[in-house]
Design a protein around this nucleic acid. Structure first.
Lengths: 197, 197
DNA sequence: TTCATAGTTGATCGATCATTCAAGAAACTT
DNA sequence: AAGTTTCTTGAATGATCGATCAACTATGAA
């Protein structure tokens, strides 16, 4: 990250990456400061604490959900159901790009951050809600093709669960296969949901 | 944990619980030693390092998979597919028991532990494989009821992904609903898979 | 030019981290 | 009873943690 970028942005973008790679506790302040090329005094000029940085990072993820995750998938295809699978394919690309090592950054924090830390989990939940909402929008558009009685909220939540779970298993296997298997089964489910009775 | 229990066992059982509650990095040696009522010198008599304890804990989880997770579900019902959902119901109980705060202890470690730490991830993957294997055994028994062409390995992996993802989302929402929604959609999937064409 | 505000520097702080070790107690073997 | 191994005790270690602070520079308004 070039020093041309404002200090606060360098800090956030370094944290985006490092929290994804190493988690929150696993990223030390000295790691972060070295990566962002910032001195500790400057950090505390912009943020009250490491904790405050976490919140800023979660805000940033939320802001990036549309442009970084949803929009590229929407550009791939006009079919609403294919758009859902295009979102999943985006995660597949990121898994491969990181040698199956990094998963979903939000999911990682969801399991790491103390549940008693409600402000942080509120933001994590908002990220999940945003993601689920995007999938739900697609389902809404495809609702006439889905079996009547399908619970769209539950189905959208389910898609997120499959993604997060698939990413998790692929990480430990250090292989893409578990993710692919999970997605292929989800595809089978959608095929059944959209097939004539 | 009473002092009647051997020291090594106290350490492992304390770690089982604390790693589940706070994660590996989030559990300090002093937390652990206080919880197990053991002095640091005794710890290092039995374990080479905190890292070595992690491996012992993962071994313990693997050993507990049958008796703690699978067997109780098998006792609930004889129907192989219902047994899968009984396993999921077991996790539901544990989620509720911990106020939606603790999820799956293996999943938590899967996302926390550095993927470069292959020995640990081998053990995590073995736990996942064991879980998937147990589900696969049930699917095998029910294979005549499933649509032909169903990939049983992929379907079993998928069940784990849904469980892990559902647990994760419930944790951040601090509510059981996301888990229930995920399981209900999985149920819908199984209903479609077993319904006549 | 002056002055206030905004941002930077890096040494330093106390707390806590995982780990070590010398000494001694307890549990065995003979 | 004597000797040997196993286990326990808890103070101490050096490293690293997140955070602080006073001194300094850069910026912008008057």
């Amino acid at each position: 990250m070039s020093k041309a970028t404002p200090t606060r942005d360098r800090l956030i973008h370094s944290a985006l990456f490092l929290f994804w790679e190493r988690g929150f506790a696993g990223t030390s302040m000295s790691d972060l400061l070295a990566h962002a090329q910032v001195n500790s005094g400057s950090f505390y000029h912009f943020f009250e604490s490491k904790e405050a940085l976490l919140k800023a990072v979660l805000d940033e993820y939320l802001a990036g959900l549309g442009p970084q995750i949803v929009a590229p998938a929407y550009e791939q295809t006009n079919d609403p159901i294919e758009r859902i699978f295009a979102i999943l394919a985006g995660y597949r690309g990121r898994i491969l790009f990181t040698n199956c090592q990094y998963g979903c950054p939000i999911g990682r924090l969801a399991l790491e951050i103390d549940p008693e830390n409600r402000p942080a989990h509120q933001l994590i939940a908002e990220n999940f809600r945003g993601w689920i909402g995007a999938v739900r929008d697609c389902l809404e558009q495809a609702r006439h093709r889905l079996r009547s009685g399908t619970d769209l909220d539950a189905l959208a939540t389910y898609v997120l669960a499959v993604m997060e779970g698939g990413v998790m298993i692929s990480r430990s296997y250090a292989a893409i296969e578990p993710f692919d298997q999970a997605v292929s089964q989800l595809r089978a489910h959608f095929n059944l949901l959209t097939s004539p009775r």
